[in-house]
Design a protein around this nucleic acid. Sequence first.
DNA 1: GCCTCCCGCCAGTTC
DNA 2: GAACTGGCGGGAGGC
Length: 897
Amino acid sequence: MGAGEKENHPQAPRGPLRTPLKQAGGSQRVLAELQPGCQPLATPPKPGEALPAEPWTPTANLKVLISAVSPEIRSREQSRGLQGARCCQEHLSGDEYERSQPSRKEKSLGLLCHKFLARYPDYPSAVESNYICLDEVAEELNVERRRIYDIVNVLESLHMVSRLAKNRYIWHGRHNLAETLQTLKKVGEENKYTQQIQMIKKREYEHEFDLDGKRNEEVARSFISSEHSEMCFVELPGIEFRAASVNSRKDKSLRVMSQKFVMLFLVSTPQIVSLEVAAKILIGEDQLEDLDKSKFKTKIRRLYDIANVLSSLELIKKVHVTEERGRKPAFKWTGPEVPPNTQATKLETTSAPCSSHISESTTSKEQCSKNLFPSRVKQSFTRHPSLIKLVKSIESDRRKIQSAPTSPVKISTTGTDENVPVYTSKMPQLAAVPQYQLEEPPKRQKDMKKNLSGSALEHSLPWPEAAPKANTHTVAPPPKSLLTQPLGALPPSHRSASPVILPQPHSGASYAIYLHPSQAHTVTAYSPSFMLQPLPCANVTGIKSITAKALSEMTTKEGDNCTAAADSGKAMAAKERPVMESESSSKRCLKRSQALQENNLIKKHRSDEESLDTAVGEPTKQERPPSISSQTNHQMDNFQEEKQNRSETLDQSMAGCSEQYKRECAPEDEDRTKTKQDIPVAFAIPAHETFFPSGYLIPLTQCTHHSNKAGLPSREKTGTCSLHHTATHSSPTAGVIPMIASELKAVNIPAFHITSLNIMLSPTSIAAAPVLSNSHLNSSSTSSVPNPSSSLLNFTLQHVGLIPAGVQVPANPVLQHIPIPSKPESINHSSENMTLQEEKPTVPKEPPEPQSVTESFFRTPGGPNSAPLLSANSGGTDTISQGTSHIPQRKLEVSEN
DNA sequence: GCCTCCCGCCAGTTC
DNA sequence: GAACTGGCGGGAGGC
């Protein structure tokens, strides 16, 4: 059968000329079921070899041959085709087989992808192995393996799967999706895709009017080529391609195309990309010289392939854009709203400037490279520059993870090295700490010095992008790195931790407990003297990033937090944060508290320079890395000054919030609704000597997403999952990052850590603190198991007199599913002059699931990049509707095609 | 007739 | 050298 046999035809007689031997069914599937999780490197048998004993009936064979020679017959047969039971096909008569032929639509990649996705949970458990055996999948889905590659490649571009070995992938689900999208957005921005899109549109326009088209084309080409010479596949840490083959066809790879395609959506406003534009951009990057029609057509084909998969993922939706030149197919982003990158801590570098910073860490780079290209075969793929820094922190994270305790143990208060590890007794972990100490401090010190000198010598900042922003404002917008670096190890989930100042009258030292905002609400409700201290938070929970300007404005209104919050909202509304008119009171509270945090963020940063200057002068502190704690130190100073002014207002608002929040925080099926921020992280830091790093940070990003689909036992929601997950996925973002022991030692503060709620206590507070097991790591509030972290938190709060005895503060509140309320769409009068028609989905949609929090937040209709409402206008007039709709994609008037 | 995209050839890569 | 992987484009189905 020649070519037909060259590929695996796992199933059924789909095509007339295909070998009928490997059919759906039967014995192989049974075997597959008996052998779940295919053998990693097992070579799938060829169709002919696979089922030699499953011949078709002679009649069926005859039919196939007949239909092969006659397209009419074939088409007639296919029109009659029914999707009969696959497993019975071999027993069907010829007519029955004919009817079993699926129609073309039934074989579409989109539908196939739906079936594929249905096999795996969106948020798989880390402990259960979600291996994908391509052969098995192809067989079960009744398609050839070639098609599975198409799907898998796109999924891989989103890091929803990663390749384990030949014929074998591992399913990550959507755990990494938010991070991936953020990364892609960042890279897309760096690559100036927005400008490219505009350039292409402009070019089209000028072409239309014959305005010096040739010259503009050249300009555009040079623009594109200069901007994209080094565009490459964007990887996430821990999810790297392990096979050189994957790296070998980079430019035209469906993966890369898919990523670029996604980038176009993420950077464009409105988030609608026409196939034509996308193809042109993609071609432009590949081969500008032959922008011929065939290449264009090929690109379009591939984009359809990608789009089908993305549609199945519900990331995009097909629409039609009617422009002057007619109706064009396009796709609209319907996926999660990707927050602005200002707080994407790991992605803060731009391609050019990062190099200087990278050069400081050759070791890390080599390690990164090693991870990237383990086989060292052909390094066609290079990590995008924006990720180099990320990789650096990953390597650091990995070290920390390796040295992370599996079981928290209270450390001794003696100042010797022996007391340093709170960590487990496991030797490798112990060994890892000194290694970290040896490697990191000088570098950190160096970085810190750079930070310190940054105010005076802005150009010497290791984060060049921050330099221009560090202006003469009293409240200079914090260099992203400065703010985020200390929390660089923090997954977005933990960046929402809010330090709360705990005055400690007994010891004379105050504490800063980093709380999840919801915890902070609760705590502040009990103690009027509490202040929320902001961290640069990822805003996956719906907190939009804040512009420097908005920050400055907010800072000027520190007397009135609510006003500041409102102002911040106002400041952001125009560009980033939509005004939500009908938001619930709980959300308003949340927002208020977020604004408070943002407000405080400024103050924190304002004091950074001075405090760092002071700090670096002290020998004992020189060893300490620039960290959030240093900022915290000065935040506290600020707070001391401003506490009196603000506490009243804050208390009022926060008390209301906490009550509101508590009321609405009913435990429910929130696995899917949980975002990465859901894990509260808290630790207490004596304010008088707080210049040490952020303590235990528990990036359990993927554990938080264990879905209800996966049906996890509660045990899996505990710390074991993160560890498992780390092992399974090699994700450095998962795991426990311990506080640097030397730094603890430097301030002579024993650290006590728990897991989901991490608290470090001063010696005065540590005395009675219970020792907690790591098994409680990340314990979910939904768990019926008593949460020890809650006990500790309550213990701590009671101990410091912040809450009365007997009062219980929820230690691990989970963000409630807060649906985005309807709100007027902000109109973005973009230059787009087009009419949008929503495509009728080809794939039958299943009943919509209840929207998760993630989706709710992400799909903020009027989000930063939300598209203007483009009305379907059957009359053909090009209009942008003055949208009043709530959800763009739903508001689009669907024009049935 | 155009849009969409399935299908499978075939070349590069891996084992 | 067999098997895996995936770029690529012909051409069929759908509208």
